[in-house]
Amino acid sequence: MKLDEHEVNEIALESRLVLTEQELAGAVRYINNFLDMLDRFKELDLKDVEPFSFAEALECPLRPDTVISFPATQAILDESEHVDGPYFKVPRIVEAE
């Protein structure tokens, strides 16, 4: 087993996920099975292989620096329960960890 419960739980918390005991047990089993599957990569010599990032030689298109105001900014604000006046209001940031 590559990762124990404690390590998987740490990773989950890093992703802002709090798991139940049952979920954690499932996640531990899942992640270890998955990492075992990925062990296959070790059979390959990847030293001189370039990482793949895009399907072919594609260049990033560039957009002109012209302002186009989004017409429905209010519709964006309307979707949040945290809007207070013109702002988004969230609970305090610094918390004892």
Binding site: L3, S15, R16, L17, L19, I31, E95
Partner: peptide, 26 residues
């Protein structure tokens, strides 16, 4: 904020999605 994020994400995502998030983070 941390509590808010944790509660939203822990309830909001289903189990397969959570598994894949944890795997991706890992």
């Amino acid at each position: 904020v941390k509590e808010m994020f944790e509660r939203v994400r822990s309830y909001g995502f289903g189990s397969e999605v959570k598994s894949r998030i944890i795997a991706g983070t890992c």
